[in-house]
Amino acid sequence: MTRLMIIFIALALGIGAPASGYAQDIKLWHRISVYQDGKDGPLLHPEGVACPADSSLIVADSGNGRLLRYRIETETALAEVTEVKLPQLNSPTKVQAGGNGEIYVLNRTPLQIVRLADDGRFISVVKLAGQPVAVKSFAVHPSGDLFVLDLAAKRVLVMTPGGNVRVRIGFPAGTDFLSDIAVDPKGKVLAVDGVAGIVYALDAAGRSFTPITDSLKPYARYPSILTTDAGGRIFLSDRNGSRIVVLSSSGAFLGRLSGRGWKDGLLQYPSQVCISPRGQLTVADTLNNRVQVFDVSN
């Protein structure tokens, strides 16, 4: 009987082996790999993922020039796929879910933010009038405002979805390049400079960015895309390092997860990451032509 119990416990622990990493306190367990659309068509270089509040999963299938929306059936299974293919979205790279069910997508060519209805219907292209704007990334604030990262003028534009710019915030001093911007559920705005490997937070007055980390280069090769979970933990996609780096809300290093490889649980040049309402981490595993879903410990 005792032997049986030991075997049972060992088996239970063995199921869902954690994706290897150096983290002591935080671990990933691989749950789902998404390889196909609803018609067994393979994904190609997906770069964007969004985890809306309705527990669906939106994938920017960049290489195929389309969005795919999956319904998450259980923690380990997806069902029902809806395809969104629009002329304005020939190369979607980043997806964000708005609070009212709207979907915002950054398209690469032409470089523009496209606004879609909950059902994937085209609403508009977000107008970025005035000086030339080069949108590297954007994030949707809980208030509904968009935070648009403009490389052409080294600034972040805070604007309404209709294109009305409320505030212009300059890049942090000495920084020429921010690679991504994110807003946590409480409205805290974060940005990352992938080249220097530094994460910044917007101050309470919303006027300037200040670093909350030293360079993360000892832990990551090119941490250039970020998201947060409900508790404010920061998840960074280390593209060249093919890992996920986790920080506390204050910027303290918590762990470096997964690693480069082809098999489930491993990553190759990961792009956008998002955290689902269930707390699962979803990664656009770009060079592996798939999306992966992980459970996150703690």
Binding site: R108, T109, A134, K136, K154, D176, F177
Partner: peptide, 14 residues
């Protein structure tokens, strides 16, 4: 810039 992918430095202030 008409390419599907543009190297980001081209689009920066510099």
């Amino acid at each position: 810039t008409g390419n599907n992918r543009v190297h980001w430095p081209m689009l920066t202030e510099n």
